[in-house]
Amino acid sequence: MKFSILINEGPYTHQASDSAYQFAKSVLAKGHEIFRIFFYHDGVNNATRLTTPPQDDRNIVNRWSKLAEENKLDLVVCVAAAQRRGIVDEGEAKRNGKDATNLAPGFRISGLGQLIEAGIQSDRLVTFGD
């Protein structure tokens, strides 16, 4: 089956990202396909490479990057939500005159159309949020 995942909450405050991660791993372990993982609302904060959690805690951002690299996942961050919350890649920095970037490896910034497309293309779109 072809899945997509929507994550609406940021890391650490809320369990949504953790649950989504465990779900994504299980989906892949069962031999299913993940078409896309889309980050919206505070979920875009899962994509900053500047987080430094305590060493004995899980690193949620790095975990997503690693899962994406190992499984060639498409991790998409909503551009409008990212702009509001300061998640920036090089293109966005240039466009909006920012002096830094913070997008973690494996993520890309794009529009909400990517979420709708995920809904159209996937058998199931599963939301993790409040």
């Binding site: 609406n8 919206y40 609302h41 409008a80 939500a81 909400l112 159309g113 979420l115 709708i116 159209i120």
Partner: peptide, 19 residues
């Protein structure tokens, strides 16, 4: 919270995709 506002954005994009 911001959910209502950002939900409307999804509605408008879904409509633009003629769903």
């Amino acid at each position: 919270t911001v959910y209502a506002l950002e939900s409307l954005e999804v509605v408008l994009i879904a409509a633009a995709f003629e769903q």
